[in-house]
Amino acid sequence: PDLGLTQLFADPNLIENLKKNPKTSEMMKDPQLVAKLIGYKQNPQAIGQDLFTDPRLMTIMATLMGVDL
């Protein structure tokens, strides 16, 4: 199971919303991170391994779920 990750990354406004959010806007200036996020739309399971190697993803996930870290 993808634990709902498919829906989190399926939002067509995902990148724009993250660019507008004060907690994630600075991160979204990294083209490699943006490319990763776009890739998760097609393969949400890929985030599982990346969560352990890129701490920014935890902040992004929390933001998408509405959790304040």
Rank of each mutant, 00 (worst) to 15 (best):
P1Y: 01
P1G: 12
P1L: 13
P1M: 08
P1E: 11
P1Q: 11
D2Q: 15
D2C: 09
D2W: 03
D2M: 07
L3F: 13
L3G: 15
L3N: 12
L3P: 11
G4N: 15
L5I: 12
L5W: 14
L5K: 05
T6S: 13
T6W: 09
T6A: 15
T6G: 14
T6K: 13
Q7A: 14
Q7Y: 07
Q7C: 09
Q7T: 12
L8S: 04
L8Y: 10
F9H: 02
F9M: 07
F9P: 01
A10Y: 06
A10H: 09
A10G: 11
D11I: 05
D11R: 02
D11F: 02
P12K: 06
P12D: 10
P12Y: 03
P12F: 04
N13P: 03
N13I: 04
L14F: 09
L14Y: 07
L14Q: 03
L14N: 03
I15E: 02
I15A: 02
E16C: 06
E16F: 06
N17G: 07
N17K: 15
N17E: 10
L18G: 00
L18P: 00
L18R: 00
L18C: 02
L18S: 00
K19D: 02
K19C: 07
K19W: 04
K19H: 07
K19A: 10
K20T: 10
K20D: 07
K20L: 10
K20N: 14
K20F: 05
N21L: 05
P22N: 06
P22H: 07
K23D: 05
K23N: 11
K23Y: 08
K23F: 09
T24C: 05
T24W: 02
T24Y: 03
T24S: 03
S25T: 09
S25E: 09
S25F: 05
S25L: 07
S25G: 06
M27F: 14
M27A: 05
M27Q: 03
M27W: 08
M28W: 01
M28T: 02
M28V: 04
K29H: 09
K29I: 03
K29T: 11
D30Q: 02
D30M: 01
P31W: 05
P31G: 07
Q32F: 13
Q32N: 11
Q32G: 14
Q32Y: 13
Q32M: 14
Q32K: 12
V34S: 03
V34W: 02
V34E: 06
V34L: 10
A35S: 10
A35I: 10
K36V: 08
K36H: 04
K36N: 04
K36M: 12
L37R: 00
L37P: 00
L37W: 00
I38A: 10
I38F: 05
I38M: 14
I38H: 08
G39T: 10
G39Y: 15
G39I: 10
G39A: 13
G39H: 13
G39S: 14
Y40Q: 02
K41M: 15
K41D: 04
K41F: 13
Q42K: 13
Q42A: 12
N43Y: 09
N43L: 03
N43V: 03
P44W: 08
P44D: 04
P44A: 08
P44N: 05
Q45W: 07
Q45E: 15
A46N: 13
A46T: 12
A46C: 07
I47M: 08
I47P: 04
G48L: 15
G48K: 14
G48Q: 15
G48E: 15
G48D: 11
G48Y: 15
G48F: 15
Q49R: 12
Q49K: 14
Q49M: 12
D50T: 04
D50M: 03
L51I: 13
L51V: 12
F52G: 10
F52I: 14
F52Q: 13
F52W: 12
F52A: 12
T53W: 09
T53K: 14
T53H: 11
T53E: 12
T53R: 11
T53F: 12
D54Q: 01
D54S: 02
D54R: 00
D54I: 01
D54E: 05
P55Q: 09
R56F: 08
L57V: 10
L57Y: 04
L57I: 11
L57F: 09
L57M: 14
L57E: 01
M58H: 11
M58L: 14
M58C: 10
M58G: 07
M58V: 15
M58Q: 11
T59G: 04
I60K: 00
I60A: 02
I60M: 03
I60T: 00
I60G: 00
I60Q: 01
M61W: 13
M61C: 09
T63C: 06
T63Y: 14
L64I: 09
L64V: 08
M65D: 04
G66N: 10
G66Y: 06
V67A: 14
V67I: 14
V67S: 13
D68P: 01
D68V: 01
L69S: 14
L69C: 10
L69K: 10
L69G: 14
